[in-house]
Amino acid sequence: MSSPPVISAPRLSFAFGPLGIDKLFSASDQARLEKHCSIVSREPLQEFESDAARYRLADTDILVTGWGCAAIDASVLQAAPSLTLIAHAAGSVKHLIGPAVFERQIAVTNAAAANAIPVAEFSLAAILFANKDVLRFRQVYAQQRRSLEMHQSFDGDSGSWHKKVGIVGASRIGRRVLDLLRPHDMDILLFDPMMGAAEAKQLGAELVSLPELMSECQTVSLHAPLLPTTWHMIDADMLARMRDGATLINTARGGLVDQTALEAELISGRLFAFLDVTEPEALPENSQLYDLPNVVLTPHVAGAIGNERQRLGRLIVDEIERFVAGKPLQHSLTLESLHHQA
């Protein structure tokens, strides 16, 4: 009786920016990859044009990509005839791949679900700080520099108790933010043109129009993808609808907001903002937003950074194990789903 044929492990290459694989994959997850795959090189490809890169692509079945990966166009696919899986250890892959990948029936997965966790946590923290009027109280305290006994004398409506909070976009991150808001006794309004009222209610929110949400909520958090239909959806008119002293939180994409109109409102001092993304990114050195006391401006750090990156790597290793075992991917992408990503 003849022995069954020996099936070699799929050959795996990495392709992303200057981060080494240790930043994305723990030692235990690297061991899992080595158990199921043959690692072509532990040094990530940072380009696909050189002869050395093309030689490695020709020997690759699984390509693990990440931030800083070059675009995978038709010429790259031609150089990688055995490629069967692109596993992106980051969020959106819209900038990375196109129809040619799906036409070749190459499987695609990404770690957007893992990246959603820190973004949602950041958004929750910003919402709680906004409801508590932390930025305003910081200004007052810095100006007066004395005990203000706010807990006894303050008669405003600071706090989260039944505060109206607006969520724009029931995206993957938007839904996770809604989950995190459940224990906090807030009244949640939601705008998402792709959703019905019944589904919104199941998520713990009341579905409303965008103008109503902007007018009614003291705190508004953006979680919509950047599409032709959502570019500058928060324009001068929508910003003008916000109440005096309201807070806008943007951890999604800078292009959702008319930057010129937002800057005018913030420079006037009428609104507050937590901005992790802007248009452009980064802002010019002379932008007043860097110094305004009513603005928290951060350099796109809401997503996975530091040790949070290894959560992304863990998801990708899980996906590769499923793929090698012939099981369905849990986070597979199609060309259609790609159009709705951030």
Score class of each variant (00 low, 15 high):
125 A>G: 15
19 L>E: 15
218 Q>Y: 09
149 E>F: 14
115 N>I: 09
158 S>E: 02
55 Y>N: 11
324 V>Y: 03
57 L>C: 08
340 H>L: 13
281 E>Y: 12
284 P>D: 08
57 L>V: 12
93 V>W: 10
130 A>N: 02
12 L>Q: 06
173 I>G: 03
85 L>S: 04
91 G>Q: 07
170 A>M: 12
75 S>I: 03
262 L>S: 07
185 D>Q: 15
281 E>I: 10
256 L>F: 04
94 K>E: 01
189 L>K: 03
42 R>D: 08
136 R>T: 11
259 Q>V: 01
334 T>Q: 03
211 P>I: 11
142 A>L: 14
197 A>L: 00
153 S>Q: 10
50 S>I: 11
274 F>Q: 00
181 L>A: 06
336 E>S: 13
59 D>W: 10
101 V>Q: 02
114 A>G: 07
227 L>S: 05
322 R>K: 14
46 Q>N: 04
335 L>R: 12
295 V>K: 09
230 T>L: 03
133 D>Y: 11
22 D>S: 15
320 I>T: 02
103 E>Q: 15
34 E>R: 12
248 L>A: 05
175 R>S: 07
95 H>Y: 11
239 L>N: 11
289 L>S: 06
95 H>W: 10
139 Q>C: 13
288 Q>W: 03
133 D>V: 02
35 K>R: 12
21 I>W: 02
151 H>F: 03
238 M>D: 00
188 I>C: 03
168 V>D: 05
154 F>H: 12
150 M>G: 12
333 L>Q: 05
196 G>L: 00
129 F>W: 08
92 S>Q: 02
64 V>F: 14
3 S>E: 15
52 A>M: 11
171 S>L: 08
342 A>K: 10
251 T>Q: 02
184 H>V: 01
170 A>T: 10
320 I>S: 08
173 I>L: 09
68 G>F: 01
257 V>H: 05
9 A>Q: 14
96 L>I: 09
53 A>V: 11
19 L>Q: 14
178 L>E: 04
313 G>N: 10
41 S>D: 15
66 G>N: 06
140 V>C: 00
68 G>Y: 03
51 D>A: 15
300 H>N: 12
178 L>D: 01
122 F>Y: 05
6 V>N: 13
328 P>F: 07
124 L>P: 14
101 V>S: 05
29 D>S: 13
207 L>I: 02
49 E>P: 03
288 Q>C: 05
205 A>K: 00
75 S>R: 15
180 L>W: 04
66 G>Q: 05
54 R>G: 13
218 Q>P: 06
248 L>Y: 04
280 P>I: 04
101 V>T: 10
70 A>I: 13
267 I>F: 00
119 V>C: 08
135 L>N: 01
235 D>N: 15
294 N>V: 07
181 L>I: 09
174 G>Y: 03
254 G>S: 09
25 F>K: 02
200 A>L: 01
154 F>E: 06
337 S>F: 01
255 G>N: 07
116 A>L: 09
64 V>K: 12
147 S>C: 07
236 A>H: 11
128 L>D: 06
210 L>E: 02
303 G>L: 06
157 D>C: 05
307 N>E: 13
297 L>E: 05
106 I>Q: 04
278 T>W: 14
45 L>S: 09
297 L>K: 10
6 V>F: 13
